[in-house]
Design a protein around this nucleic acid. Structure first.
Lengths: 251, 251
DNA sequence: CGGTGCATTGACAAGGGTCAAATGTTGTGG
DNA sequence: CCACAACATTTGACCCTTGTCAATGCACCG
């Protein structure tokens, strides 16, 4: 129904200008020696903007590059053999898309822009070559990868036994942390994804998401205007996400 | 409550005899040249049996080795920061435990024997050294790893939106496949884990597992005697696991 | 202005969690 | 080998959470 897109803009089809792409906001180079960062920047190719509903890469495409999000946002969606449409990740500015393709050799889902989005391409061969010379970077890439994977696995297992309330609280706490880490306000942000996307990501229906948000609004935890979110009580939200709402199984 | 164990038998505390451990049933060496398999066998150290409720390795221990299960079975359990007890994996004979520690550098959960269990230790340094010389093996290890991770992520996302019926059907279909792949009967097997463990693994309560199994019994899909499972209609079970029982979100 | 898609809200039913009790099953000490 | 304790499983009753269906309100767009 919400087909990823017929109109696809592959990375390779984008105009690439030769100036380097500024990566300083990306978590990857944090704390690396300056000259290494410079080299990293030299590899990064800015791409023309990906527009809403267009795909940055498609599920099944051979893995060639990572992509650093500079502005905008994307969702990663996987279609299963049984034709289910699963939102598996969101990518925010400063984050790295494509990490989970390294292992597979091909992208395990399509990255669809939720709004007009600009990215830098990091051709993996070059990154890999650079990694050879900069062991810290290599470590960082793999740690980044394994950390992501580990976090997600654990989060999924936790989600599996939480109520809708708690799932959403977790979602907002996590989002808040992601914005904070990148230097944006952890209390006020816009999310370009629909209620349906959020629900799909958390294993809930759109309606449940909507109702739960309304409740949060009443309880003065969040102030929500469409896709504008204002966290009023992060502390309480965090407590709620961590402490309560376990279901099934003796603690 | 079911504490992993106070009495722990670390790999290093086990008596190790010097004869090599027969790995032919393991999936890892499938299709490798014979001389490589021989080398692999040379690395593998048989350990003294791990008894029920004892741990093969503990969550947080630095990663040193993979373990090939020869007989018996284990569950991997992770304790979260919020003190939740999550069953994340089961290891059956012929399978490899510890893969998910490679990335982390330490074991992300404890491997607790569900019954008396024998394993071979594969010290990773040696395995890694061997990998240097045998690129196919290296590929195989990493593919094995990434495949596991990928499968599990997808499975978790799917579980997130399935009914209890379907989760259990998936579980048995998967178990059946695992037994088949290792050369055991895919229709009749014993599972040493409790209903509680299965429930925890699938994000369900013990009671729901029990009731659902009773229903399957009535429907002549399975014949169950305690922890003895006999799949009567694998075909139907598979259809059930794949086709039906989606919840939430428009297909 | 009449679509098309997103969001909210209500009514309703069912799936499955919780609590509790009954019934096996396993393990241990005598 | 028995008796008893500890644990695992099954089953029942109840009701909360959340999915389903449906109607309505909003926005954006041609």
């Amino acid at each position: 129904m919400t087909n990823p897109s017929n109109v696809v803009s592959f990375a390779s089809q984008h105009g690439v200008d030769c100036r380097s792409c500024h990566l300083s906001s990306l978590c990857l180079p944090r704390g690396l020696p300056l000259e290494d960062i410079a080299e990293l920047n030299g590899i990064a190719q800015p791409l023309a903007p990906v527009r809403k509903r267009e795909a940055l890469f498609l599920q099944g495409m051979p893995f060639t590059s990572l992509f650093a999000v500079r502005s905008g946002s994307l969702k990663q969606v996987t279609t299963t053999e049984t034709d289910e449409y699963l939102v598996t990740t969101f990518f925010l500015p400063g984050e790295l898309a494509g990490l989970d393709a390294i292992a597979e050799g091909s992208y395990p889902g399509s990255a669809v822009a939720l709004e007009t989005t600009t990215v830098c391409e990091l051709p993996f061969e070059q990154l890999d070559a650079l990694c050879m010379r900069v062991p810290e970077l290599r470590q960082r890439v793999y740690r980044n990868l394994s950390q992501d994977v580990h976090n997600e696995r654990l989060m999924l297992r936790l989600l599996l036994r939480r109520t809708a309330d708690v799932r959403l609280a977790c979602f907002f706490v996590a989002m808040s942390a992601r914005f904070r880490r990148r230097g944006y306000s952890p209390y006020r942000f816009q999310l370009a994804m629909s209620r349906g996307d959020i629900g799909n990501y958390l294993g809930l229906t759109m309606e449940t998401v909507s109702r739960t948000l309304a409740r949060y609004q009443q309880q003065r935890l969040l102030d929500i205007r469409g896709r504008d979110f204002h966290i009023l009580d992060l502390e309480a939200l965090t407590r709620f996400a961590e402490e309560s709402g376990r279901r099934g199984v003796n603690g």
